[in-house]
Simulated assay, not measured.
Amino acid sequence: MEHQLHDIESLRFPIGEFQKPNSITPDYLDTWIETIENFPSKINELTKNLSVNELNWIYRPNGWKIKQVVHHCADSHINSFVRFKLALTEEKPIIKPYEEDRWAELIDGVSDDLTASLQIIKGVHARWVLLLKSFSEKELKRQFIHPATHKTSCLEEVIGVYAWHCNHHLAHIEQALFYKGQF
């Protein structure tokens, strides 16, 4: 099979891992925010005509099914939106991590019906983009702390991480469709 030509890391990270630029310019921010803004329509377009069989295709060996990727994006982006709001309203808050792999196994993470998750993505992204487009220079520098890694993250960088996250999971869905889930 063609997918055997790929190593597991290229299947896991089809667009590579996030690379923070040396300097986060307004052009980067505009591009990243546009990516976040366009994500709901792109994920909807990729998944709207999929059969239940296709929704169960995986993007790599031991990877999530397409439906789990969609539900994960709803979960992840809700969490990120809340983290942004915490960073804007509290001084360097310690955010709450979550067990994304375990969430992906819950009943709402394995449902064949994507409707609610796509609605969540659409709504969260509309509010998130409104917020992101309003940021001042000072707000872009606001930070939060992740308790598992003890890493302090700056909102301007996290915008880039989530633009990457959108493209990363769109690529996973495209990959599952390309290989017809044959892993």
Rank of each mutant, 00 (worst) to 15 (best):
F13K: 06
F13I: 12
I15Q: 02
I15A: 02
G16Q: 10
G16P: 02
G16T: 14
F18R: 10
Q19F: 01
Q19H: 09
K20S: 12
N22W: 00
S23W: 00
S23R: 10
I24N: 08
I24Y: 00
T25G: 11
P26M: 01
D27I: 13
D27H: 09
Y28I: 05
Y28K: 04
Y28W: 04
T31W: 00
T31L: 09
T31E: 14
W32I: 05
I33T: 13
E34S: 15
E34I: 08
T35E: 11
T35K: 12
I36S: 09
I36Y: 01
E37M: 07
E37A: 14
E37F: 08
P40R: 02
S41E: 06
S41I: 03
S41N: 10
I43F: 06
I43D: 07
I43T: 05
N44G: 03
N44A: 04
N44D: 03
L46Q: 14
L46T: 04
T47R: 01
N49I: 00
L50N: 09
L50W: 02
L50H: 06
S51R: 10
S51T: 15
V52A: 13
N53G: 07
N53Q: 14
N53F: 03
E54G: 03
E54I: 00
L55P: 05
N56L: 05
W57C: 04
W57D: 03
I58A: 05
I58H: 09
I58M: 04
Y59A: 04
R60K: 15
R60V: 09
P61M: 04
P61S: 13
N62T: 13
N62Q: 13
N62K: 14
G63A: 10
W64P: 12
K65N: 12
K65H: 15
I66D: 12
K67S: 13
Q68E: 13
Q68T: 08
Q68D: 11
Q68I: 03
V69I: 15
V70Y: 11
H71E: 05
C73T: 04
C73V: 10
C73S: 12
A74I: 02
D75N: 09
D75E: 12
S76W: 06
H77M: 13
H77I: 03
I78V: 11
N79K: 12
N79L: 06
F81C: 01
V82R: 15
R83C: 02
F84H: 08
K85S: 02
A87N: 02
A87F: 01
A87C: 08
T89W: 00
T89L: 00
T89A: 05
E90K: 15
E91D: 10
E91I: 10
E91H: 09
K92E: 11
K92M: 04
K92C: 07
P93D: 07
P93Y: 04
P93Q: 03
P93N: 03
I94N: 02
P97H: 09
P97F: 15
Y98R: 13
E99P: 08
E99C: 06
E99T: 10
E100K: 03
E100I: 03
W103R: 14
A104K: 01
A104S: 14
A104Y: 01
E105G: 02
L106Q: 12
L106M: 12
L106C: 06
I107L: 11
I107R: 05
G109Y: 06
V110M: 07
V110L: 01
D112A: 09
D112P: 06
D112W: 00
D112Q: 05
D112G: 15
D113P: 03
D113T: 01
D113Q: 04
L114V: 08
T115F: 09
T115E: 11
A116N: 11
L118W: 14
Q119G: 00
